[in-house]
C-alpha cells in the first residue's frame, strides 16, 4: 500500500497557442473503494494561474490552504499578482521545507505569464513531492494514472493547438488514460486558460 496511491487521482496540463489547459479526474477513494465523485483537486491561484494537487487527500487541502496563504501574502507585500514561474518556485520551496517528512502531493502548475510587450506566454510545470521542478514545453502529468497519461499525451499532443483543439486533446488524453487506471476516473474537470477568459468544463466519465 503506497500512500501516494491511497486516495487515487491524476492531473495533466498542456500548452497550446497562447493558451494552456489543466485537467483532472474527480475521484476520491480509499484504495479500491470509491468515496466521492466530486473531489476537486485543481484550484485557481490567480486569474491566470491554476494548480492541480494529485496525491494524498488530506494534503490536497492542507497544501492548498498553505499556497493560498502564501500567495495572498505575496500579493499584499508586492502589490501585484504573482507570475506563474514565481509561483512554481513558491510551490517548490514550500515542498522542500518538508524534505524529510514530505506532503504526499505532486503539484502541476499551469498559467499564462505576461510578456514585456503586453502579450501572454503559456507556462506549465510540475514537481515531485519534495519540490524538484520540471519545466516542460509540451505537457506535464502526475498522479496514479501518470504512466498512462504520458502515453496518451505523447500520442495526441501537437504544437500550437488553438483553445478548442487543446480542450479536445487534453480531454481525450485524460479520459482515456484514467479509464485504464483503477484509482482515477469518475468524471473529469478541464480548465482552458486563454488571454481574456477561462473556460471550465466538467466531463462525464465511466463510473466503474
Amino acid at each position: 500500500m503506497s500512500i501516494m496511491e491511497l486516495n487515487g487521482g491524476s492531473v495533466i496540463a498542456m500548452v497550446g497557442k497562447d493558451c494552456v489547459a489543466i485537467a483532472s479526474d474527480l475521484r476520491l477513494g480509499n484504495q479500491a473503494l470509491g468515496l466521492s465523485s466530486n473531489f476537486q483537486r485543481i484550484f485557481p491561484v490567480t486569474d491566470r494561474i491554476y494548480v492541480g494537487l494529485p496525491g494524498l487527500g488530506t494534503d490536497v487541502h492542507t497544501l492548498w490552504e498553505k499556497f493560498r496563504f502564501r500567495v495572498n501574502m505575496y500579493t499584499i507585500k508586492e502589490e501585484r499578482e504573482i507570475e506563474p514561474e514565481t509561483f512554481a518556485h513558491l510551490v517548490s520551496s514550500t515542498l522542500y521545507e518538508h524534505r524529510f517528512g514530505p506532503y504526499f502531493i505532486e503539484p502541476v502548475i499551469a498559467g499564462l505569464a505576461k510578456t514585456p510587450s503586453g502579450g501572454v506566454k503559456p507556462f506549465i510545470a510540475a514537481t515531485d513531492l519534495i519540490g524538484c521542478l520540471n519545466f516542460a514545453k509540451d505537457f506535464v502529468v502526475a498522479g496514479t494514472a501518470s504512466s498512462k497519461l504520458f502515453g496518451m499525451a505523447e500520442g495526441l499532443w501537437e504544437p500550437d493547438l488553438e483553445p478548442e483543439d487543446l480542450f479536445e486533446t487534453i480531454s481525450q488524453a485524460l479520459m482515456n488514460a484514467v479509464d485504464r487506471d483503477a484509482y482515477s476516473g469518475w468524471g473529469c474537470v478541464v480548465h482552458v486558460i486563454t488571454k481574456d477568459k477561462i473556460v471550465t468544463r466538467t466531463l462525464k466519465g465511466r463510473m466503474d
Binding site: 486516495n7 476520491l28 480509499n30 466521492s36 466530486n38 487527500g57 488530506t58 487541502h61
Partner: peptide, 15 residues
C-alpha cells in the same frame, strides 16, 4: 461531510 483520521475531507450526498 466525510472526514477520516488523516484529515481527508469531502462533501457527499451519502456516506
Amino acid at each position: 461531510y466525510w472526514i477520516d483520521y488523516l484529515g481527508t475531507l469531502t462533501k457527499i450526498p451519502f456516506g
